[in-house]
């Protein structure tokens, strides 16, 4: 593995019985890169992501994340990554502050550290009035912005974002992407899935999974050139339709 690769995946495969959910995929993601991991529902994205975050064991192949082997060093992987998804991010019946303390504790931060970080985060997001409100009472967009910051509490080298912006209003969705850019600029590697094809255009590179395989992987610009279309949406439609 070269020094700058934060994710290195080689011939990664996952089988459930005789069904191959992830079929021999290989790719690398560099430090500070925004990597879009796209694919149709059921193409194998979630299964692949579960292997990368150390909660599902590959059937064949190997992957290292932040320098740790996902099979033999899964606990190290978990300590060095951040993760948030649309379905689960924060506890709705805890306040914003309580969530920060809880997740800070889980990641083994000292209480002085947690105090300092939660103050910084509340300042950065402008949440002074809401810090003691229950997370469940926040609009979804705000919740997702807080969740993203919480996923970064322990300074992970990589953050995995599983459909972070689904259903979020268009303005907040863009603010969310500005947060992503800012972190990537600071050197954090971003691994993100989305069904919004305009968001695919914001990524440095994009891979598209079809039926368990990575069928395309390049910059949005090169992919559009390769398929001779104007948008990532058309790339996606062309790829997924052709193979079916």
């Amino acid at each position: 593995m070269t020094k700058d690769n934060m994710i290195q995946v080689q011939n990664l495969t996952k089988m459930f019985g005789d069904f191959t959910a992830v079929n021999n995929i290989s790719f690398e993601v560099g430090k500070g890169e925004v990597f879009g991991f796209l694919g149709a529902n059921g193409a194998g994205k979630t299964t692949a992501m579960k292997m990368l975050i150390g909660i599902s064991k590959p059937t064949h192949g190997a992957a290292t994340v932040a320098g740790y082997n996902v099979l033999t060093e899964a606990e190290q992987v978990k300590r060095n990554i951040g993760y948030m998804s649309q379905r689960f991010s924060l506890y709705n019946d805890l306040t914003i502050k309580e969530n920060i303390v809880f997740f800070g504790g889980i990641y083994g931060l000292s209480s002085a550290d947690i105090k300092e970080k939660s103050q910084a985060m509340i300042n950065e997001l402008g949440l002074h009035d809401m810090a003691d409100s229950l997370v469940g009472s926040l609009p979804l967009g705000w919740k997702q912005k807080v969740a993203f910051s919480v996923a970064l509490l322990h300074n992970p080298k990589i953050v995995f974002l599983d459909e972070p912006t689904g259903g979020v209003d268009p303005i907040t969705r863009r603010q969310f992407w500005e947060m992503i850019y800012m972190e990537a600029n600071r050197g954090v590697t971003i691994f993100v899935t989305t069904h919004y094809m305009d968001e695919a255009e914001y990524c440095d590179r994009v891979s598209i999974m079809v039926a368990g395989k990575i069928e395309a992987l390049d910059t949005p610009k090169n992919l559009k050139g390769q398929f001779q279309v104007d948008s990532m949406n058309q790339v996606f439609l062309k790829l997924a339709r052709n193979i079916e």
Binding site: G39, A40, N41, A43, Q86, E163, G166, G167, H195, M197, N233, F236, L237, A240, R241
Partner: peptide
Amino acid sequence: DEPTTGVDPVSRK
């Protein structure tokens, strides 16, 4: 009510 939320672009189309 939101029949296409979380659905990929091909299935949405």
